[in-house]
Computed example of a mutant assay.
Amino acid sequence: MLPGISTEVVAGSKMADLVIAGSGVIGLSVAFELLQSPGLQPARIHIIAQHFPGEEPISHEFTSPWAGAHFRPFPHRPESFGADRRESGYTRVTYKRMKTIAAEHPESTIEFMKGADYLEQPPSEYDGMSPGYNKDSLENFREIPKGELPPNVKSGFEYTTYCLNAPEYLGFLQRQVTALCKAKGVELCFKRMTLRSLAQVYEVVPSCDVIFNCTGLGLQLDGSYDPSCFAIRGQTLLLDVPHKTKFAAATVTHQGRDGNWTFVIKRPPVGGKPAQYILGGTKQPGDNCVTPRDMDSHAIMERARALYPELLCESEFSVARVNVGFRPARNGGSRVELESASPGPVIHAYGLGGMGYETSLGVAEHCLRIYRGLKCQRSKAKL
């Protein structure tokens, strides 16, 4: 039994067994939204994963606990317009749901605040009017006047966004899924294992009705991984900042002329502890080094020393931990679709890269629309 997890069986009359492969933010969000969707509750939900929230030490194979995390919108780029539009749509659904969750569950750690982007050499789509990045699609969006911009920054924008404490939010989702299952008479089964293939799910759960494939890099039925997927190494610093700072109410991202992104993301506090801050970071596709690199940390701190001196503690950064995580990205953007194949249907939901939290509930909503459609097709086929 996993720490803090009840596996008590509560009798129910539902018929289907559903399997969610993966216990990161996408997998847990699918379970969370499923349990609040009328007509979709199964008899049992099986969550199969190699790692689960709350484990220490955190495995580098488990991406979600390492995240910042915040919502940072972006304009749709000409070279990836379709994928950007799709992902942006997921973020807007998630944004609305996050507002509701924050109001109903303060323990979720979701905090709404100001977001700011500063760009030293902005791409042409950062004009304040492009799809996905304008006053019509973002709350309190405005272009920052030139006189308010930091040195060397050519353009900047502000909007309302949110931050959350990634490990705590994962734990919140896990607890909510457990409580909702108990309340609705759904049996919840956590199984720790490394799947050789998605087809193996049907050996473990022969009564499986459908698999939600939330495996990040896209494990397939035949045991291969989606060839379009790849990992992006990210190294960040978790900072203790005991004094008051403007970043308690704002998250800031700065893009330098050299292309480096330097960001500050609040990790809202729990249990009376002070807030911490994620300072990042690196974006290193194809780099599989799990060990923190001093060179990367020093580069991040040198940029931040000039950009965010408010985070310094007596002229130095108080680094609580160096994080190394691997964002599960995919060429062409995320894959959220139904695959009808033997031995059974799969609803894929992976390849979100570094956007797992900000797209999570939107992806879950899309998955459940697919599942509802699948159930309707089956009902019609029986007539």
Rank of each mutant, 00 (worst) to 15 (best):
S155Q: 14
S155P: 02
G156D: 14
G156Y: 09
F157G: 03
F157K: 05
F157N: 06
Y159G: 01
Y159W: 14
Y159E: 11
T160D: 15
T161N: 13
C163M: 01
C163Q: 06
N165S: 04
A166W: 12
P167W: 06
P167F: 00
P167N: 08
P167H: 02
E168R: 05
E168C: 00
Y169L: 04
Y169M: 02
L170W: 11
L170K: 02
L170H: 13
G171Y: 01
F172L: 05
L173P: 05
L173H: 07
L173N: 10
Q174M: 04
Q174D: 01
R175L: 01
R175P: 03
R175T: 01
V177Y: 10
V177L: 11
A179D: 11
L180T: 01
C181F: 09
C181D: 12
K182E: 14
A183H: 15
A183S: 14
K184F: 12
V186L: 03
E187S: 10
L188H: 05
F190W: 15
F190C: 06
K191M: 14
K191F: 13
R192V: 00
R192L: 01
L195W: 15
L195Q: 09
L195N: 10
R196F: 06
S197A: 09
S197G: 04
S197V: 00
S197F: 05
S197R: 12
L198C: 14
L198G: 04
L198M: 07
A199E: 15
Q200W: 08
Y202R: 12
Y202P: 05
Y202N: 10
Y202G: 05
Y202T: 05
E203Q: 13
E203K: 15
E203D: 15
E203R: 07
V204E: 08
V204S: 13
V205I: 00
V205H: 15
V205C: 02
V205R: 13
V205Q: 04
P206F: 11
P206Y: 14
P206W: 12
P206N: 09
S207L: 11
C208K: 12
C208Y: 08
D209S: 03
V210N: 02
V210K: 07
I211C: 04
I211M: 13
F212A: 04
F212M: 03
F212T: 02
F212K: 03
N213H: 13
C214T: 04
C214K: 07
C214I: 05
C214H: 07
T215V: 01
T215N: 07
G216K: 02
G216S: 02
L217T: 09
L217E: 11
L217S: 11
G218I: 03
G218M: 02
L219G: 11
L219E: 13
Q220N: 09
Q220M: 14
L221M: 15
L221P: 13
D222Y: 12
G223A: 04
G223L: 05
S224G: 06
Y225H: 10
Y225K: 00
D226W: 07
D226E: 15
D226Y: 11
D226S: 08
C229H: 06
C229P: 00
C229L: 01
F230Q: 05
F230N: 06
F230E: 09
A231E: 14
A231W: 15
A231P: 04
R233H: 00
R233M: 00
L237K: 06
L237T: 03
L238P: 03
L238F: 07
L239N: 07
D240Y: 01
D240R: 02
V241K: 13
V241M: 04
